[in-house]
């Protein structure tokens, strides 16, 4: 049966084909690099987009692949932001790359501990617990005013130039590349992870947890592992946010932020990694355009789009693109 047979499908080839890089996957990176040269004045916005992509990508790992619905993913974004911020503001450690790694590690630890507890629960209980965890952290940050700056926010961060050379300049040029590099590393990791055996077991858990137990899968540990990875990545996004702005407020832990990242991912499409890219780009740019001009219009629009996406375009933008392409193909043949 190992002999190649033209009529029989080839399982190895099929699985390899899934994992193979496609030419179109170069597109986001080409756009990102092109944007630097074409739109040099928009690099601060570009950095915001990238930060949001990393954050949404981290959510996609748990939501899109493992099926964990979280209403409190900002907990880990915020943990990373405060960790990096406090390291600089209180301990005077301003080297950005190690600061970033520290933020990611702290968020990962918070993710590991909270995930270990929370992921024993399902459904509504889990939903409530994720929500409450983030709000609890927010309240904690509010209470620990001495360290976090409380309601007024954490000030006094100072970061040294990247590699001792590149300052966070007013136009955000250096940090654009920095953020893009962090995104590239996070993306490579996420892509590896979802195509690994581990990644397949996550989809298995999403599709049928009961059966995963019955084929001997240590479901809880699998979930804790991906949750920790996701929290670390969210923490990196938060740390990046802190370094870019040199300022962190309680808002990094807010329900609004947890909601926004969920919306971004749904808008782009879940369980496909690139949904985070599309969703974050569209959302952050539109928000920048509309939210200032007419906040009510923006908010109403987001709400309406969300309702429409859920009712009619469940795959998000990329899902819509997919089915449009499929229909085109069918129409042709």
């Amino acid at each position: 049966m190992n002999a190649p047979d033209r009529s029989a499908p080839d399982p190895h080839g099929f699985l390899r084909g899934r994992e193979r890089w496609r030419p179109v996957e170069a597109l986001p990176w080409l756009i990102a690099i092109g944007a630097f040269f074409a739109l040099p004045d928009y690099m601060i916005l570009g950095t915001q987009v990238i930060t949001m992509i990393i954050f949404a990508l981290s959510l996609d790992l748990i939501l899109g692949y493992a099926g964990i619905v979280s209403l409190g993913h900002a907990a880990y974004f915020g943990a990373g932001a405060y960790a990096t911020g406090m390291l600089s503001a209180h301990l005077g450690w301003g080297e950005p790359i190690s600061g970033l790694l520290f933020g990611g590690a702290v968020a990962g630890l918070v993710g590991f501990v909270s995930g270990w507890v929370l992921l024993r629960y399902h459904g509504l209980t889990l939903l409530m617990l994720t929500l409450a965890t983030a709000i609890m952290l927010q309240e904690l940050a509010n209470v620990l005013e001495v360290w976090t700056g409380g309601f007024d926010g954490l000030l006094g961060m100072e970061f040294t130039p990247l590699f001792g050379l590149f300052e966070n300049d007013l136009w955000g040029h250096a940090y654009y590349w920095y953020a893009l590099a962090v995104l590239a590393i996070c993306f490579l990791f996420a892509r590896r992870l979802v195509h690994s055996a581990f990644g397949r077991t996550l989809v298995g858990i999403r599709e049928n947890t009961r059966r995963m137990h019955a084929i001997g899968s240590p479901v809880h540990w699998r979930l804790v592992t991906v949750y920790t990875a996701s929290a670390t990545m969210a923490g990196l996004a938060g740390a990046l946010f802190a370094e870019i702005n040199a300022y962190v407020t309680l808002d990094v832990l807010s329900f609004a932020r947890s909601g926004a990242v969920l919306i971004v991912l749904i808008l782009g499409g879940t369980g496909r990694l690139y949904g985070a890219f599309v969703g974050a780009t569209v959302y952050v740019i539109l928000e920048d355009e509309l939210a200032k001009a007419s906040p009510e219009f923006w908010e109403f629009g987001v709400g309406l789009v969300l309702v429409l996406v859920v009712l009619f375009f469940r795959g998000g933008l990329l899902g819509g693109l997919d089915s449009a392409a499929r229909r085109l193909k069918e129409a042709r043949s």
Binding site: L63, V69, L71, G123, L124, L127, G259, L262, I263, I266, P295, E296, F297, W298, E299, F300, V302, G303, L304, V305, L306, V307, V309, V310, L311, R314
Partner: peptide, 29 residues
């Protein structure tokens, strides 16, 4: 709005109702 999603997962319900809240807040403002 709600009826079509009774059999859907909680994610869809959460998203839909967040959408409704956003619209309501914007409308009220």
């Amino acid at each position: 709005i709600y009826l079509p999603l009774y059999r859907a997962g909680e994610l869809d319900q959460v998203l839909l109702s967040i959408g409704v809240v956003f619209m309501a807040i914007a409308g009220a403002t």
